[in-house]
Nucleic acid binder design. Sequence first.
RNA 1: GGGCGAUUAACUCAAUGGUAGAGUGUCAUCUUGACGUGGUGAAAGUUACAGGUUCGAGUCCUGUAUCGCCCACCA
Length: 882
Amino acid sequence: MLENLSKTYNPKDFEDRIYKYWKDNGYFKAEVNEEKKPYTIMMPPPNVTGNLHMGHALNNTIQDILIRWKRMEGYEALWQPGTDHASISTEAKVVEKIKKEGKSKEQLGREGFLKEAWEWTRKYGGNINNQLMKLGVSCDWDRERFTLDEGLSKAVEEVFIRLYEKGLIYRGDRIINWCPSCRTAISDAEVEHEDTEGHLWYIRYPIKGESGHIVIATTRPETMLGDLAIAVNPEDERYRGFIGKTAILPLMNREIPIIADEYVEMEFGTGAVKITPSHDPNDFEVGERHGLGQCVIMNGDGTINENGGIYNGLDRYEARRRIVEDLKEQGYLVEVKKHNHSVGHCERCKTTVEPLISKQWFVKMEPLAKPALDVYKEGKLRFIPDRFGKIYTHWLENIKDWCISRQLWWGHRLPVYYCEDCGEVMVARKKPEKCTKCSSTNIYQDPDTLDTWFSSALWPFSTLGWPEDTKELKYFFPTDVLVTGYDIIFFWVVRMVFSSLEQMGEVPFKDVFITGLVRDSLGRKMSKSLGNGIDPLDIIDEYGADALRFTLVTGNTPGNDMRFYMERVEANRNFANKLWNATRFVLMNLDEKIALDKIEKSMLEEEDKWIISRINTVIREVTNALGRYEIGIAAQKIYDFIWDEYCDWYIEMVKPRLYGENRESKETAQKVLLRVLENILKLLHPFMPFITEEIWQHLPERKKPLIVSDWPKFNEENEDQDAEKKMSFIMSAIKGIRNARQEMNVAPSRKANLIFVTREEDIKDIIEYGRRYFINLASADNITIQDNKESLGENNLSVVLDRCEIFIPLKDIIDIDKEIERLEKEKEKLEGELKRVKGKLSNEGFVSKAPREVVEKEKEKLEKYENMMEKVLQRLNSLKNS
RNA sequence: GGGCGAUUAACUCAAUGGUAGAGUGUCAUCUUGACGUGGUGAAAGUUACAGGUUCGAGUCCUGUAUCGCCCACCA
């Protein structure tokens, strides 16, 4: 056993091996099992051709912690993995690839392109999974799904048809966001607004048949090519006379009416606004109200089309430049002002999006949003932290119809067919033989595909077999918790909720755990363009997955961003090393032939009872914290226990017994060391699965692997207040002695006598009991206990405790002035405490209103501090007088 | 224009209304038979500011300041 454990922790030696062991033995698998309660998490599917980044690492670590914990608690724990086809992003990558080969989408044709895309997917699709495995994720790989799988595609089709039949999907001409670079429509959620310093151009439009003119202001002068009106506010005195007249569109020489509409803000610009119904959502509405019609002036690639007259064929920005120039030349440009406004960009490629009228497919959101809002209000859906619930509701309350058609090829093609002859629209599972209206056989399928999020919205149930009525669906759905970043609440969380409610009649998950962003050490977002991204795999390679995992879940709170510091990873690697070596110590001191049966209670020493009582408490604390999703707190508790209590105190205390002659005491210590270690490994396993499993496999009498061992339970019988009290006295005595000695620069090698002065019998017992601790941990060579200190001279260090004073005679070393200084410091500290406690206790309100135990505690403290203060003062007095 | 978050030790962050903690860094010290990826000890805080509620506030309320994020069709 021991011989296999190297002197230092070296995660590379075992992480891959352990993972393979778990996987090959099927410990990640979840099956429908009516004897057990299910616990389900759906992994947010990463992009199929993506790479693992810190966000994934954080996210999946949290999920893995929860799933491992629940698995150990005895749940049938399903963690459903899979990948997303990420239409727009993957398609862009494939386009780029074939472009390098000198080919274009059009040249390849739809089929040829899809072939390329599938090849690409097969080539890079496995990467992210392998990377996740490095992290230690314990998801059920046998159930892996891909959004373009046959089953999931069927679910997508089914939902589309159902929504269509219900009238919740419609096709229409609407202003959508058009990305001229991706050459597709995108949804509102895919547009990022950014405040940009632009200009406001003031342009003069002449009035037909008059000498007058009207000045408008615009931020996008090129859109004037498509102007169909000028609008003013009906209340605006300045323009009252213009309403109903006709203006001449400069450069185009087109006649456009001047209309009145409430929408126009009188205070902004000149109070008159040009109306371009085809290229602005507001103008579109105005156009609808006034029956202005449409005039599209732009092509899909962002160039001006034939409606743009002489500007035909120019890129939109070149057209803008030329138009401004021409306006100026022809005397129409009144002035140009700097103007900050927000400009929409494509979330994927950052190109400025163009609002554009286009025939697209939409999901009618209002009827779907309502139930999604209701479940939140009814408490059936919970956010952790709950403030994100507000973001969720705010979005749903202001939701607009969802544009779901994309002019892309990589994705789920719309199950929509058109009759070439009569234009009839048919939504069907299979291509209709002939037109349902005119019986023509001239039928073609809509070339568009669906927004990727349309399929991810179904993830919680499509992965379980829906629309088939599978046993998995019945058992594992609804899921328990969704773990995801706040950046995709709108894209994904919201859409999963309303989709589930609509199709399943239930929420897809009860809790939504929201994570923050992992930033670099300067607080910047990690990004490719900045080149400041830290690759999780590099960290795993250097420090191990356990250290990375621990770093990601400690020291931050749900929903808050965190900074990634290498020093913290290192510290956590050191923690793993600490545990590794503690284990080596335990195994090194474990007699081969020791019978590891039950521990004989009567043989337990105080420190045994203390550590047993403490681990028991930690079991409760860690379990409770996990139950509240306080993962960082849970991790911190177990960390502190291992390092401070188990390693620094218990192991040190137990050493004399291990090296001693008393066989029974020795064996008891060995057993306790081992049993506590076992519990430690269990509690730590969800956080650091590799090292704990590796160590576990080296412990004696292993039957089950740790990953499927039972989660420890709090046991009231193990609580021992008395032992905790005694050990706490002993520990504070040791700390006091160490402190005093070090302050006086007494070398640890210099052993000294300790003279304990106390009249209290119980304290005397504890001291007597603690003899060996003082000798080993407080550099003592002899210990005396006496009732009074009269016989002692002044050349002592004195350590003041509650109801006890310790004297350390060090004749040659004591510098009286320094000792006085040290005690003065002690006095100051006590004064502070006394002031606080006295203040509280003399406060009538506190004594009468605070809970009894709080008051009692304060009273005890008062007594203790007064007692200590008296001794410090006496000591100071006698030193000063000597 | 709305909404949200943050402000705590030198740095990065924790902290169920009840004595403000950790990691890193700093200083001192220890080559003790698990670990120097370690041990021991120390220094370091008016919890951004101003009010309020409460017996008691880092924590709850109101306001201010600074920073950050999200949402929003003002051309």
